[in-house]
Design a protein around this nucleic acid. Sequence first.
RNA 1: GCGAAAGUGGCGGAAUUGGCAGACGCACCAGACUUAGGAUCUGGCGGGUAAAACCGUGGGGGUUCGAGUCCCCCCUUUCGCACCA
Length: 877
Amino acid sequence: MPSTDKSEETAVTESEPAGNGRRRDDGSKDDRAKEDRYDAQRIEAKWYERWKQTPELYAAEPHTAKKKFYVLEMLPYPSGALHMGHVRNYSIGDALARYMWMNGFNVLHPMGWDSFGLPAENAAIQNNTPPRQWTLGNIAKMKAQMKRLGFAYDWSREVTTCLPDYYRWNQWFFLKLYEMGLAYRKKSLVNWCPLCATVLANEQVVNGRCWRHEDTVVEQRELEQWFLRITKYADELLRDLDRLEGWPEKVRTMQRNWIGRSEGALVDFKLDYGEHHKGFGPAGSTITVFTTRIDTIFGATSIQLAPQHPIVGDLAAGNPDLRAKVDQLIAEQRKAKEQGDIGEIEKHGVPTGRYAINPFNGEKIPVWVANYILMDYGTGAIMSVPAHDERDYEFAKKYNLEIRIVILPIVESEETMTEPKLPFTTHDGMTINSGQFSGLATADALQKMAQYAEERGFGKATVTYRLKDWGISRQRYWGTPIPMLYCQKDGIVPVPEKDLPVILPEHVEITLTGGSPLGRVPEFVNATCPKCGGPARRETDTMDTFVDSSWYFYRYTDAHNDRAPFDSKIAQYWFGDRGIDQYIGGVEHAILHLIYSRFWTKFMRDMGLVSNDEPVERLFTQGMVIKDGAKMSKSLGNVVSPDEMVARYGADAARLYSLFAAPPDRDLDWQDSGIEGVQRFLGRVFRFVARNADKTQAGAAALGGPARSAPARQVQRKLHQTIKRVTDDFKGRWHFNTCVSAIMELVNVLYSEEEAIAKDADSAPFLAYVQRNLVLLLAPFAPYLAHELWEMLGETELLLKAPWPEYDAELAKEEELQIPVQVNGKLRSIIVVPADSGEQFVVERALADDKVKAAISGKQVVKKIYVPGKLLNIVVK
RNA sequence: GCGAAAGUGGCGGAAUUGGCAGACGCACCAGACUUAGGAUCUGGCGGGUAAAACCGUGGGGGUUCGAGUCCCCCCUUUCGCACCA
């Protein structure tokens, strides 16, 4: 995923696990202490080696009778090193994958590299390293980090987007898009980031700034570019958001806003050139306005045009004074956009001196040009209705334009009718002064007036979107070459499918000036037209890297297919009807990646490649990892390196802490002392099992309890309560921080009852049972330690496939209850009663309690409220 | 300006449905074990008090036997949207 993280990536330090020979820093001479010491480095080195030997452990099975589960974390951009955000993201996904494995699912849990992109080119310029080399080197480093962290990925399906076996399918898709009329080339004003030295998609511009360079204002340039017709799916993209119940509401809202659907009408106003213009100019020219309030058209008292509107150009052609004023308006608008506060622009406008005719009443109204009208929304022209629109009202007040009321609040009778406070913008009013349309309710008027305009041929109901087509041309080197040719004779010619891939040449000089680097590679540029055999010029722009990530998760299902991007049947198995079961990543992709991916899936469905309408059924957006209240960044010096954490505390501790420190959907404030606590906890678990493993026999474990003594029963209760808490969280709200707390509590109880249980005659099978379950509970969160302990317990079954413990409500039930007793809502005492006590008994015991007696003495008991098993409240007066 | 989420000890955070506020962890304090401890184990730890009472979940009202949780008003923070006609 292209990182939206603006902080610079830290340099890598390779973190191969330290082996057994690692020097102990405690210098202990005590052999016994050595045995009991939780040595994360030793344990993790051992399992790291074993897992390296058995990569098939995490391989998804092909089509089986098992239920499938596709869990996916957003793939990283190979910047050089993982950061804590990655660790958190992948720890969540890995815990879920392991949990699902243990629940008997056929789990697909893949990983790959979103490896095209600008940083590789910047690195090339700075260090004179070819992008390919830099990128592949980074991938190797980060892959090693992931393995060291113990994430259970099916590496046999690894996808690397910068390699030809992947990007050839980008090109193949592009040809399909072109065939289907979904890819087209057009000249238009586009966003240009001077630092990236390339065009950006609208989605990559934030408040007029580049998404990667937030200090850099994006320029507008007129360029010919390739676009993907995402707008064809605007309505479906919007509609299907309602179905995505497994997505955070926040993300759905952001996408709704981005698509920006708006129902309204187009209305043609004929320009009136006046008597003396007869026979001159573009007589009969019309201005088409877009309005969502056609019901207010009788209140229109001017037309406002965007300063870039073509008619403004015509009108200003012979009018230097107007031209100058319009240029001023353009400058003001641009400045506001660059400052990101177009919303607060000081409204200015100039009259053109011309008039337009309102087709509803034949009225002549003045045509103005105004700086608050945007050329890229609607038609770039509006009818101004000051009485019923805030902006128009403000503008009319400023320039003394007529304000005419045509909407009134709906009232019971004419006597109660009052003048509305202006601007009166309700959608729930009634028309007046609107000719034959007077007296209609707003909704009715909207519909009837649009219909009228359509019948008379000067307008129609329409829908407008803010969403624009996706500009994918990039004037950069490190991306997928767009497989198109330009022939003098045949024009635009697609590269034939059989000639794919168009290979990205390797030894290319990269600069940030002078246009697309590929344009300077004659061997690349010069080609032959497949139609006429004559000379042709190759397209030298590359594709936006968001193309790569729009469909990569389908490739995982069939990663080595060399005849198609993937096999439809295989993809259908993993995607089902509703897509990836669980997708996990940062909220920064709420619009970019996640809207492009949805578009791509719909396009692939329409070409018959997939049958699902949506790529992702459930989406989880995790919070950021921050430190000292601020986002980690090099400049603040608060970056925590995963390598350092792994070296100091171990991968299990780093992972467990990233789950424990906060609920996963909230920001996590990293504290080094916090990870120490988690490491201590892992040590407590280790030592408990180290002391008790040999007292138990493997095999006895499977028999389970039964717990006979009181201490054993208490541990058993706690165990089952813990199973419930952890299982419920996986199924529901994903508060893994409380799962970890629950397991910590269980271990605390084990410690306090350990001695007492040791005295039981049948302690061995019971301890085996408890420890086995403890390890199973820990397995999704701290896999290294869990595997080590599993082995210490003599288990031979694969831990990953061992069944998840089952909760037994009977065993979890408390034998005694502590009932808080309140007097008038204030806690006065806590009484202990047998679990099966009835109300009468509880009340009796409460009234016999000294503290309760003291609190009610001399008062009269009015009422007793008993919440069974929970609480007793005695009301006195 | 509009919309959403959040505000709880010194800190990270619990309290899933209106029912013991502060689970779990960190930090801190004390004790044990020790030549030693940055290891480990045990205990304490919201404020207040000798102990109680009492006060405490951003502030102010309300509903209720009972409110962190529900309702009304306000404040702060974060995020999203913002002349989109």
